[in-house]
Design a protein around this nucleic acid. Structure first.
Length: 952
DNA sequence: GAGCACTGC
């Protein structure tokens, strides 16, 4: 936990060290220090950001800060005790004392301490809450029995499809490659990188010559040397190498037939035949980013290219060798041979296989094990099977495996089901939001980490599991972080539960430390060699460079589609135009170039175009945002152009220190913790301040979340979960939303509120607004405007869509994004189920917009703003100046009082999704939070009367 | 008068 004291100290020092100071920089440096395992390491990290010249001052500062943090951590550790009580929330009085104090000062309805009545009410509520929780548990028991087969066929097919298109490994490989390419690009930007590297090595040798080096440091130095020598060789080779690259062909020269000196391999007899076979095998299996071991082809087919016309300067070039290189490349097998390879053979060929026995032994010996292994080592698919084969699932016990992404959970489960030879959903299943493909037979269960978190609600001790694998732990989502704290705790009182934390190389030490120095099991080796090229990417005009690269590839390289990563819609549209224009100019002299854009807000029918097979003789270019990085797979892509730029506007990014922003400061600061707090409280964790987070969120963020939950009525004045809070926890939405949903019971409009919630949760992706049809799109949007505000407009959209029987065509005609609507429907369906679960009836009251708006107010009274002057608003609690977003239906109306759904800071502080309310409602729905005095209008003029019916 | 992208429940 970053203490205020240290932060202030850093801010102070910064003036001296870099001549300026800023809170965010201070926060950033502190978090950097926290993540470093020595002050030297910390200094290196500072250096890596490329923003500070490392001089004496900086060095001294770094060492002081690191030591401060170290001391702080020590103190923290000794203070921490596991205070948590594990039974279903007891009504004991152990609770957060801090927020309580704050609350009683500021917000308690009566300033006096607990009256008798209050105490009675509290106890009654707790009783009701526990009774409710028990009912839920009973319900869950019944339900798990008939989960089987529900929707599993559809899910099975879907997963199969996904599997064919994509394997998990390639999904994670591409982002890894991109990440490392970006990281290195940033690290190495500068004038002469080679020189710097040389100096670096010299420095290392000088600085650490006397120290005992760790394995990694040795590796690191060796790596640097390899890079240097390769790069030097490359330089020497100079033009000779360049010739092998793209160039603009002369008119009469056929680029593809350019003569190349035959290699030894080529001179061996039968080469052409082999080459032909290879080509055809590859045609069959070539897919974008297919880095997986199963498809057997080498990685070299993908070039990461960014270059200017004929000036390609590699900053560094190296091959990360694969441990299996000495074996014949399986790629060279004939198709018939390939088929012979049974699933078992494939399993045995994975890098993890030789370690099977050792691994099982280690798992047997240790309760918690950190598993470190490269992507592609087979850990995700194999370890659960090893455990299964070793009998860990005897007696209907389960092995749980978490994945950070839905598709990963699905496709890996499908893969493993296939390997074991069972139907997906039977012994092997997966569980993700909107889709539960498991049955009572399921013993290996893949799921998203968020799903496991939800599972805690109904099974707080995870009694059904003998082993839990947290895969891709290095991705560190908020969910996994919480999961770590929970499982670490569970492991203490369930010694039979095995805990495996699987991670790529970087962070295993940190995981080990967190899990009380758990041993690390390393799986060495990489299945296939991977080539990485870093280019000295020009910072300016990189868009142009991309376009040039595309054309170069098109003109000079063999068939195969191109994928270009760009940062946003605007750039995609620009390059689309340029490419089409240039291709047109070249006319019939070149093969057809099909340019297709893809970004998240593009309607799905247009998105689908990128999956259509490329016609013979043509080449497809896909211009994509990061969307393609993780969530889709395109056949036929052979060339990937990645300029290494990543737009990352963080909440804090307004400091002008852009290079610092490359590392986001903390996900937690941008996330609403309320949800998490509610979940933890529901799990009986009362003392959140001392919850064992791997990286604790800022203290204030936690306290704020607690305060907000109190105001919403989810916690009582002792910080205990109320019945309302327990019910709210069931909903996978932010607390204000779940409060709004629960409040709809009282106003008899739960149907409407659910629709609104669903629509709000697909935020800002409802209306489609293509650049070339702005006017039409805006008109279409305005046609949906409904008196009262944006929530009602969204409701209107949903209802109209529902009336057309959820028609795609209708969406198309009305500039509505069908994909978002489908998601809204999924969300809504889920919410309907949950509403039933928390014992609330579905009721509809669509005409009474006052009721609907009151329900909204009951959840969002925090977000009240009052008209001030000059078209601007002031938030009631913080007197912050805000504006209505220009897209809002109330942009011109400017009602006196309104509730906003969220604040976004772009060019100004905007309220997005606003709804008109009356100030009196605030007293009705949140009397404990608002005093009548705060809500005085300050004007003699009365508000237009709209009570009972909305205008219009 | 606006406008980076993506993941998860």
């Amino acid at each position: 936990m970053a203490s205020k004291e240290v932060e202030l100290w850093v801010q102070d020092q910064l003036h001296d060290v870099i001549g300026m100071s800023d809170r965010y920089i201070a926060e950033f440096l502190i978090s950097l220090a926290e993540k470093s395992n020595s002050s030297g390491h910390f200094l290196q990290k500072i250096q890596d950001t490329g923003t500070l010249d490392v001089n004496d001052k900086v060095t001294r500062f770094a060492s002081e800060l690191w030591n401060k943090k170290k001391r702080e951590r020590k103190e923290e550790k000794s203070r921490k005790k596991n205070i948590r009580k594990r039974e279903e929330t007891s009504s004991s009085s152990s609770s957060d004392s801090e927020p309580e104090k704050k609350r009683s000062n500021r917000q308690s309805p009566s300033s006096s301490s607990d009256t008798e009545d209050e105490e009675k009410e509290r106890l009654k509520d707790l009783e009701e809450r526990d009774a409710f929780a028990k009912r839920l548990r009973d319900k869950d028991k019944d339900r798990t029995k008939n989960k089987a087969d529900k929707g599993s066929k559809k899910a099975f097919e879907e997963a199969k499809k996904r599997l064919e298109l994509a394997e998990k490994d390639r999904r994670s490989m591409i982002p890894d490659l991109r990440k490392s390419s970006r990281r290195d690009y940033l690290k190495r930007r500068g004038v002469d990188k080679l020189q710097e590297l040389e100096e670096d090595i010299a420095d290392d040798e000088y600085l650490f010559s006397k120290d005992e080096l760790t394995e990694r440091e040795r590796k690191d130095i060796k790596y640097k040397k390899t890079v240097l020598s390769l790069a030097k060789e490359h330089r020497k080779a100079g033009d000779k190498l360049k010739e092998g690259r793209y160039y603009m062909p002369d008119e009469d020269e056929k680029p593809l037939e350019k003569y190349v000196e035959p290699t030894a391999e080529e001179q061996r007899p039968g080469f052409e035949q082999r080459q032909w076979e290879e080509e055809h095998v590859n045609k069959g299996v070539m897919k974008f980013g297919a880095k997986d071991a199963k498809k057997k082809h080498k990685e070299k087919e993908y070039d990461f290219v960014v270059d200017e016309l004929d000036e390609i300067e590699f900053v560094s070039m190296l091959q990360m060798p694969g441990s299996h290189e000495e074996e014949p490349r399986e790629k060279q097998m004939s198709e018939a041979e390939k088929k012979k390879m049974t699933i078992q053979d494939v399993r045995k060929s994975l890098p993890i296989y030789p370690f099977r026995e050792d691994l099982l032994k280690a798992i047997e010996d240790h309760q918690v094990l950190i598993i470190e292994g490269e992507t592609g080592s087979g850990k995700t698919t194999q370890i659960p099977q090893y455990l299964y084969e070793a009998g860990y699932t005897k007696g209907d016990m389960k092995i749980g495996v978490t994945q950070p992404r839905r598709v990963a959970a699905m496709s890996v489960a499908a893969r493993v089901a296939e390997e074991i030879g069972v139907k997906l959903g039977n012994e092997v299943g997966y569980s993700i939001r909107f889709e539960d493909c498991t049955s009572e037979r399921t013993v290996i269960k893949y799921m998203t980490d968020g799903m496991l978190l939800r599972e805690f609600l109904s099974e707080p001790d995870l009694a059904g599991y003998t082993a839990l694998i947290v895969d891709e732990a290095h991705e560190r989502t908020l969910h996994t972080d919480i999961l770590f704290g929970l499982v670490k705790d569970i492991a203490r009182f369930r010694p039979d539960l095995k805990l495996l934390i699987s991670s790529a190389t970087l962070d295993s030490d940190k995981f080990s430390e967190f899990f009380d120095d758990a041993p690390i099991f390393r799986i060495p080796g990489r299945r296939y060699p991977v080539d990485i090229f870093y280019t000295k990417a020009p910072e300016a005009d990189y868009l142009d460079a991309c376009v040039v690269s595309v054309l170069q590839i098109h003109l000079t390289q063999p068939d195969g589609d191109i994928l270009v990563f760009l940062t946003g819609q605007e750039e995609i549209e620009t390059s689309l135009e340029i490419l089409q224009e240039r291709a047109r100019k070249l006319g019939n002299s070149i093969k057809e170039l099909i340019v297709l854009p893809i970004y998240s807000t593009l309607p799905s029918d247009l998105q689908a175009k990128i999956f259509e097979p490329t016609p013979p003789g043509a080449r497809k270019v896909v211009l994509a945002t990061n969307i393609a990085e993780t969530s889709l797979t395109i056949d036929g892509i052979i060339y990937v152009i990645d300029p290494g730029f990543c737009k990352q506007k963080s909440y804090n990014a307004r400091t002008g220190m852009e290079s610092l922003v490359v590392t986001p400061i903390s996900k937690i600061q941008r996330t609403n913790l309320g949800n998490v707090v509610l979940l933890l409280k529901s799990l009986g964790i009362n003392d959140l301040i001392h919850f064992d987070f791997m990286d604790p969120p800022p203290h204030e963020t936690l306290v704020l979340a607690l305060e907000q939950l109190y105001a919403l009525g989810a916690l009582n004045h002792k910080g205990e979960l109320t019945k309302l809070g327990r019910r709210m926890a069931e909903f996978p939405v932010d607390p204000m939303m779940s409060k709004m949903i629960l409040a709809s019971e009282k106003y008899k409009c739960s149907e409407e509120i659910l629709s609104i919630t669903a629509m709000l949760s697909v935020n800002n992706a409802v209306f489609y607004r293509p650049k070339d049809k702005v006017v039409h799109a805006d008109n279409a949007r305005m046609n949906f405007f409904t008196a009262g505000g944006d929530h009602l407009t969204l409701l209107n959209v949903y209802n109209q869509w529902a009336e057309t029987n959820f028609s795609t065509q209708w969406c198309f005609e009305n500039f509505i994004q069908h994909r978002s609507m489908r998601r809204a429907r999924d969300v809504r369906d889920q919410l309907v189920g949950l509403l039933e679960r928390v014992e609330i009836e579905l009721t509809s009251n669509s005409m009474d917009t006052v009721a609907i708006r009151k329900a909204v107010t009951a959840g969002f009274f925090y977000h009240t703003a009052k008209f001030s002057k000059g078209g601007s608003y002031k938030t009631v609690k913080h007197q912050q100046s805000v504006m209505i977003h220009p897209n809002s239906s109330l942009f011109e109306e400017q009602p006196r009082w309104l509730i906003y759904h969220e604040l976004v800071f772009t060019t100004k502080e905007f309220m997005r999704q606003v709804i008109e309310i009356e100030n009196q409602w605030l007293l009705e729905v949140a009397p404990h939070y608002y005093k009548a005095k705060e809500l005085e209008d300050g004007s003699s003029r009365k508000m237009p009367k709209t009570v009972g019916k909305s205008k219009d």
